[in-house]
Measured scan of single mutants.
Amino acid sequence: SIVTKIISIVQERQNMDDGAPVKTRDIADAAGLSIYQVRLYLEQLHDVGVLEKVNAGKGVPGLWRLL
């Protein structure tokens, strides 16, 4: 499923980069989806406690990390 793919992308990127959070844009590119589509999935995963959003604010790139 797309959700499983997104989780594995975040996991893979974090492992490659010493646990650093992953940008929404990088996840979207790797999943082959638009940034808006991916954001909806990321928000859902956040709501159920799978991911945390590391930063927030208007015009700030979203950074995500697995919990």
Rank of each mutant, 00 (worst) to 15 (best):
D29S: 11
D47Q: 14
A56P: 10
G19D: 06
L45M: 06
I27S: 01
T24C: 04
L63F: 08
D18K: 11
G19P: 04
S8W: 11
T4A: 14
I2Y: 06
Q11D: 04
L66D: 04
A30C: 06
G62I: 15
L40R: 12
G19A: 05
V50C: 09
A31I: 14
V60C: 13
N55C: 14
A56C: 14
Y41R: 02
V22D: 00
R25D: 09
P61W: 12
T4C: 15
Q11I: 11
A20D: 07
L51I: 08
Y41D: 00
I6R: 00
S1K: 10
V3D: 02
K53A: 05
V50R: 05
K53Q: 06
T4I: 13
E52L: 06
D18C: 15
S8G: 10
M16N: 10
Y41Q: 02
A56D: 12
S1W: 12
L40K: 13
Q37V: 13
L66N: 01
I9H: 03
R25V: 10
D18A: 11
I7G: 00
P21A: 13
K53R: 10
H46G: 04
G57E: 08
L40Q: 10
D26G: 01
D17E: 13
M16R: 12
A20H: 11
A30K: 06
S1M: 10
D29F: 11
T4Y: 13
G32R: 06
R25H: 07
L63C: 08
I9W: 05
G32M: 07
A30N: 04
G57D: 08
V48A: 14
M16A: 13
L40C: 14
Y36T: 12
D29P: 01
V60Q: 14
L63S: 11
T24S: 04
G57L: 04
Q11Y: 12
L67R: 12
A31T: 08
Q11G: 07
L66V: 11
A20P: 04
I35Q: 05
L42C: 06
L45Q: 00
R39S: 13
S34L: 05
A20S: 08
L51P: 04
A20R: 13
G57R: 07
P61G: 15
G57Y: 06
D26L: 04
H46C: 15
L40P: 10
V22E: 01
W64A: 02
A20C: 09
A31W: 03
D47T: 13
Y36H: 12
L33H: 02
K5A: 07
V54G: 01
E12P: 01
K58V: 10
N15V: 09
G59Y: 05
Q44I: 14
Q14C: 05
G19H: 06
K23N: 08
R13H: 07
P21T: 04
I6W: 02
Y36W: 12
I7N: 00
G62A: 15
N15A: 14
N55Q: 09
L63Y: 10
K58P: 13
A28I: 02
I2K: 03
L45V: 02
E43I: 06
S34G: 07
G62E: 15
L51W: 01
I9K: 02
T4N: 12
E43L: 06
M16V: 07
V10H: 00
R25S: 13
V22S: 05
I27A: 00
I6P: 00
D17A: 15
P61S: 14
R25W: 07
R39M: 12
D18R: 11
V38H: 00
I7L: 09
N55H: 10
D17P: 06
W64H: 02
D29A: 12
P21F: 08
W64F: 01
